[in-house]
Nucleic acid binder design. Structure first.
Lengths: 172, 172
DNA sequence: TCTAGCATGTAAACAGTTACATGATTGC
DNA sequence: GCAATCATGTAACTGTTTACATGCTAGA
């Protein structure tokens, strides 16, 4: 139940509405844990039902602002410190690689080139983001920078791998 | 619908039963696309209903052997060549990094050290696998080796990143 | 006034996990 | 005979996606 904990984690910083959290997901958190509008609103309702967050304010247009409770913070700490992360991930990109043999070598190389291109583009975006943000030494900055560095290293690795892989496919 | 295509992809090589495919998933494919027994049996039934595979043989103990049809191969090729892979993946490991600030620096470093350890161990397993297999130059070998190389590079990157990240967390 | 963006909610479908349930066959 | 493993299936639940549905408010 990671979405639940992602929401609790975001509410540590400051209270926020479903809409606010949706924005955060679609920008910063989308890379590690995509979530849809339906999912976020639904999960917030459940979180409030179980007392991990409370509706602390109501604004115009039916806006509900959620605040983390002590129980919510305790649950977040419990999740982080006392449960094991699920380490395995699904990669459709890599799954396809296994089956490239059913395509022509040209098509297979095309696929790998396209992967390299996407990796390069994403790397550039992350590098721009890295330059744009002014990194303080607060928690958010420290761990945000660590996560971003992961992205930079990951996309660099992907690009190099895809370029190498292309050379491994026999030429027609 | 990647599971569907993963099954079609495996059936390209040779006919297999649900049980055979389950073994393949739990060994080789589990790293890129984990699947449970329930899911595989259910999906094979649907695949047979839609004519992408056929039950080509029945063995002892109710064993059903599935064979890829022309329609199935066409569908696999279509998926590979004419649809875009979903590039984003969920990473609970990385999601947690964003929230390490709610733990003590000691706990945060502990988490990162544990990630480095797991990455090292997985890297070693993959390296052993790489040495154990004798790589031919057929399609399976070429693309299997490419996928394995991805795993090696990925786990190496993760380990280096986690070790670097640990140094970024202020000491108590 | 009208458009863009704020703001929430629900329903249906699909994908994935866990647990239960059953039984046959092979080899010791 | 018995244990291990082969072999399949179903039910309930959880998580995720897509689509529909509604309405308010601030600013040009």
């Amino acid at each position: 139940m990671s979405l639940r904990h992602a929401l609790l984690g975001l509410l540590v910083e400051h209270p926020a509405s479903g809409y606010d959290l949706l924005k955060t997901f679609s920008t910063s958190l989308a890379n590690v844990w995509p979530a849809t509008q339906s999912q976020i609103y639904g999960e917030l309702t459940k979180l409030a039902d179980s007392g991990l967050v409370v509706v602390s304010d109501q604004g115009p247009r039916g806006r509900k602002e959620y605040t983390l409770t002590d129980a919510g913070l305790a649950e977040l700490r419990h999740w982080l410190a006392e449960t094991e992360p699920q380490r395995s991930t699904r990669s459709e990109v890599l799954l396809r690689v296994f089956f490239l043999g059913v395509l022509t070598p040209e098509q297979a190389r095309g696929y790998l080139e396209s992967l390299a291109g996407h990796a390069t583009a994403t790397h550039a975006e992350l590098a721009a983001l890295h330059d744009a943000v002014d990194w303080d030494d607060d928690n958010l900055s420290v761990y945000g920078r660590i996560a971003l560095e992961y992205g930079l290293r990951f996309t660099a690795m992907q690009q190099e791998w895809a370029e190498w892989a292309r050379t491994q496919v026999r030429t027609s």
